[in-house]
Write a protein that binds this DNA or RNA. Sequence first.
DNA 1: ATCAAAGTTCGACGGATCTCGTACCATGGG
DNA 2: CCCATGGTACGAGATCCGTCGAACTTTGAT
Lengths: 102, 102
Amino acid sequence: MASPIPHPEREEIRVEAVLHALADPVRLRIVRELAAHEEGLSCGVLDLGITASTLTHHVRTLREAGVVRVRPRGTSRISTLRRADLDALYPGLLDGVLAARR
Amino acid sequence: MASPIPHPEREEIRVEAVLHALADPVRLRIVRELAAHEEGLSCGVLDLGITASTLTHHVRTLREAGVVRVRPRGTSRISTLRRADLDALYPGLLDGVLAARR
DNA sequence: ATCAAAGTTCGACGGATCTCGTACCATGGG
DNA sequence: CCCATGGTACGAGATCCGTCGAACTTTGAT
């Protein structure tokens, strides 16, 4: 079986990494979509105009920064926003970013 | 006479640029210092462990992103946080970032 | 058992970024 | 006027980052 997908603990999340993860247009778009899908979703269904390998790279960046949690379901990976962790660490940050006009 | 230092209008500020500007350790440090000095300060007085030209680069990045406002005073440049603009555009973002444990 | 679908891994390429040193400019004090 | 101070401009080097294609893995369906 595959080793479980690694995620930083809440205490390990660094603000620079979160900001860097959110600073990319593609990743910000992903975060916006996840914010609108509380139940999580397979990012592959999004029409992002990038290849699968690039998508893997972006989701990994978000996961390693502590922005999203990823869990396997069948052949897919379901991503969810780590809202509770981010709100606890940086109250207002996520809402502020999501409030930005598109 | 020198042309006035250019700054983006509030409407021109892009969230990706703000996040990118904040994602660098040196710049985040500068922003923290400016947050603690409402009246503004000359960033050259900070002991950041970088050269003057690198500091110019970072302050320009912050200014062009719309994070700080820079105005000349004598031979110095006084930087201030654009709190009102950022709070209006992304309510909570700045406070969330500043709330991060150091 | 075979196959298709969804993701991952790896290496590569090009462009952005951070850093510096050197040379330069502007302001204000003597 | 001279010059010290604070900052800028420019170019260069090293590294990082976003992107891709090709090959591979894993899971579930037939």
